[in-house]
Write a protein that binds this DNA or RNA. Structure first.
Lengths: 342, 342
DNA sequence: AAAAATTACGAAAACGGTTTCGTGTTAATA
DNA sequence: TATTAACACGAAACCGTTTTCGTAATTTTT
């Protein structure tokens, strides 16, 4: 088995110094033509490739970015990830992924692990538990070490970092306004407990739209579910007793669950009840009826997060650190499908 | 901004040598009690953590594994990835993901990139284009460099490496046998063009089951689709003219597409046509009717792939290289749901 | 022909660790 | 008291690069 060849090997074979080899391979003006050609030919013949680790140690940066997300088996996060990976790759960066599993401890441990030299910066969506706890010391520490950090979707304002989010309040407002325009009057909201300001904002948009259109907000029309175990009976009970004629669900999985349940209860969608979900994943496109959904443009979020991060990383390398933080707001869009067609 | 502290910093502050600090932190017997306590206390106070890159360079291994997959926005691959990440993490390894996008070039470039010291081993599912081309030189090179490689799902036998696959032929056979047992007689197959031996094996199982039960194989009952653009009219035409009473689809997306189309054509599922898909993703659970599907146990595949890889990596470190290659076969299972209930 | 400038290369330090080996001090043994 | 052993630590090599600086040998300039 042919081990990887190093500068030292080439130097030994060609009876020149390591420095000469290094320079020759970079086409340095310092080295004579003959020597350069000899070294380059030899390197090519033996397929020399510099060792990334050695270069990282020398340069004090790795061209790796760390991505920490709550869940990878989740359409939204994977699209964001795809956006990150694609852009990062085009810029010569690799991506190390860690899954926090919505656990505070895993998030902390993974980030500490990576922060010890493995990555040049982080892209992060916070674990549910971290949001609940409200403990962001691990992020603050990372920032203190001068490691750039971009948060997306599930973020916090308690840490100095860049952010990429969608216009949750506005789009939620727009959706509900549209439902009202479609002559829906008893509009329900299916949301989750926790998850910080994402859900809060969507709820605020919902309330604002009701208010602005003279409809009363009724807590009875709000169903609050635990994300990780959806209770069918609770949902069925809600729809049997509330007589809503439209529902906004803050995520796709809630929407699809509810859709199935109300259909089993004998309601017709969209005639009896209109449905709108968030995050426009694969389920929305293939459910029956197809689901009207708010596209969060995960690819775009990922790309922008990566752009911002790499910009910070490279500014830091140039020693002109950027001390201001951006919050980029992606415009979500409503994709209308069968579940709201009148 | 407090930069990371190094051994050198501690040594300077405490007026001892770097070696002493290093040994003290590893609780070496060589160092006296007082010195150890002093060093450890200081290190703790300043939150010293060794630099991963420096350790990697010294040890010649990184505790990173490279995962190269065709697509990340794909339920099966994400479940495999989750299995890998979970196990790898529990063993103190990190995971670098590269997406080949089913492109040969991207696969080659990404792997060459990572092979230069960034990772200790690869877990790979081949790009469609690579399978088409039949060019596996990049994998052979990686093996020649002594880098361990585990392939899963889309694999090749032309490279000396470990493999994790499912019992495609058998499970396909079982499924068709079951359909025949359910009194289905005109059983169609929806498969794709390309994708190497995965599709081939599933087709073989299908044929074997027909043959063994005295049913004729009819090429007219086989619909071959391009994975990346599914043509609705072709599918509709197929179902209008063929009068199949059951269909086996080699992946979930084909199944869901076809399911929708036949329902629009006025057929009832499962009464007129029974449907079975592969890979039991999220769509299967939420379609109407729910889809009977072959579970490929992605988590398990990922975990086993990671187990095998890490075993190889660590054996290599101990200098007792393992020169034999395993092919681990995961037993797929059929999850029966609405699309086949009689 | 002497001085200055250019060319072509090598030595060595640096990145941040680990590890082997050598050595001065003290304690135990003959 | 002389010899040996144990203890506690430091120097230095090493991992594979990059880069600064020094310097012979040659060429150019005066």
């Amino acid at each position: 088995m042919r081990r990887k060849i190093t500068l030292k090997d080439i130097a030994r074979e060609l009876e020149v110094s390591i420095s000469t080899v290094s320079k020759a391979l970079k086409n340095s003006e310092e080295i004579g033509r003959d020597t350069k050609e000899k070294v380059q030919a030899f390197a090519k013949l033996y397929n020399y490739k510099p060792n990334n680790i050695a270069i990282s140690l020398k340069n004090k940066h790795t061209r790796n970015i760390g991505v920490v997300i709550p869940d990878i088996v989740h359409h939204f996060f994977t699209t964001v990830f795809r956006g990150i990976e694609k852009y990062a790759n085009s810029r010569g960066y690799n991506v190390i992924v860690c899954v926090s599993d919505d656990s505070f401890n895993k998030e902390v441990i993974n980030m500490e692990m990576l922060a010890n030299g493995s990555i040049d910066g982080f892209i992060l969506s916070l674990a549910a538990e971290t949001l609940d706890k409200g403990d962001f010391n691990h992020l603050k520490q990372i920032r203190e070490q001068g490691i750039p950090l971009v948060c997306f979707d599930r973020t916090t304002t308690e840490v100095d970092c860049d952010r990429v989010i969608i216009n949750d309040t506005d789009i939620s407002f727009e959706v509900v306004k549209k439902l009202i325009g479609d002559n829906r009057r008893k509009i329900g909201l299916v949301t989750n407990v926790g998850f910080g300001d994402v859900s809060d904002k969507r709820e605020r948009g919902y309330k604002n739209a009701l208010e602005e259109n003279g409809l009363p907000f009724d807590e009875n029309l709000v169903l609050r579910l635990a994300y990780h175990d959806v209770e069918e009976e609770v949902i069925a009970e809600f729809f049997k007793s509330r007589e809503v004629d439209a529902v906004l669900c803050v995520n796709e999985i809630f929407a699809i669950h509810c859709l199935g349940i109300v259909q089993n209860l004998g309601y017709s969608v969209p005639d009896d009840i209109a449905f709108v979900g968030f995050s426009d994943g694969i389920l929305s496109k293939f459910s029956r009826p197809t689901l009207t959904s708010v596209a969060q443009h995960g690819d775009q979020m990922g790309q922008i997060a990566a752009e911002i991060l790499i910009e910070k990383i490279e500014a830091e390398l140039e020693e002109n650190e950027i001390e201001t933080y951006r919050t980029e707001i992606i415009q979500a869009t409503l994709i209308e499908r069968g579940s709201t067609r009148n």
